[in-house]
Design a protein around this nucleic acid. Structure first.
Lengths: 140, 140
DNA sequence: AGCGATTGTTGTTGTGCATAGCAATCACGA
DNA sequence: TCGTGATTGCTATGCACAACAACAATCGCT
């Protein structure tokens, strides 16, 4: 019906990413998490005590946009802030945050597994390297 | 730094798609077009006289969201509407619309070419089939 | 001590997409 | 022929995500 579009990797990339994001959001929704929330929690697990700005730098979220995100996580009792000095504050998972993240990991892992299973075996292992090259190869 | 995230195809898919979308939008911006506009114009070239609802159905844009999109295209003189019956209207490219689309194609094709060039040769041909399987294999 | 950079924050804007509701119209079976 | 259900175009509204500008407080370095 719209063959020209379906032949464009860029178009299909956008569509696939939208579909996957929507599905992941739906699944994480049962934990009260958004996809971005989960990314932040994951980062926080890897680097406890990291600062808000540093998280933003790591996963390319503007400093300003971290504020409402972190406030939600803090209000939900998943993270807490500890002053490092007069202006920086270290972030870390609370116990409840660790529990929620563990549940999130279960969801994410089965999601990723199903995602890969949908891809024919001969293409499967090429997806991650191809996408990584695409994204990281950005020249701006 | 955040290895867990970078190892998730779903995460990298989202990031790659965002980066690509931003770049394409930037390039199409010089024509005053958004990425979605271009998709609609392409569809309109393939199926002149198609109706707004049918376009929405073809590329999964809600009927409601077609309205401002089409109004912009019409205000820009790229498309025109012809009543089919009392409630439906056929859409078609104007001459100016065809010209703009031709320019858009030039941009899109070089964009897609550069996109593929960024991917190592051994992975390149697997991207489109993998993404298509991912997206079309949706079970909801 | 002073100055540039950094941090957290507020506020605003734009884009993409979803949903609900509505009036007009169409299509098809009774 | 009628009328009921589906379709069409449209308004309005909301949510998620992200960009930008501006700001006060603080830090780090010379």
């Amino acid at each position: 019906m719209h063959d020209r579009l379906l032949a464009q990797p860029g178009y299909v990339l956008r569509r696939a990413a939208n579909a996957m994001s929507a599905e992941l959001s739906r699944r994480l929704g049962v934990l009260g998490l958004r996809a971005t929330d989960a990314s932040v929690l994951i980062l926080l697990e890897e680097s406890p005590g990291i600062t808000a700005s540093a998280i933003g730098r790591a996963i390319d979220i503007q400093r300003a946009n971290m504020v409402p995100l972190l406030r939600r996580l803090e209000d939900a009792g998943l993270i807490d802030k500890t002053p490092i000095d007069g202006k920086s504050q270290g972030l870390a998972l609370t116990r409840s945050g660790r529990d929620t993240l563990a549940q999130a990991w279960t969801i994410i892992e089965s999601f990723e597994r199903e995602l890969l299973e949908r891809i024919p075996a001969e293409h499967r292992d090429h997806l991650l390297p191809a996408l990584t090259a695409l994204w990281q190869g950005e020249d701006d």
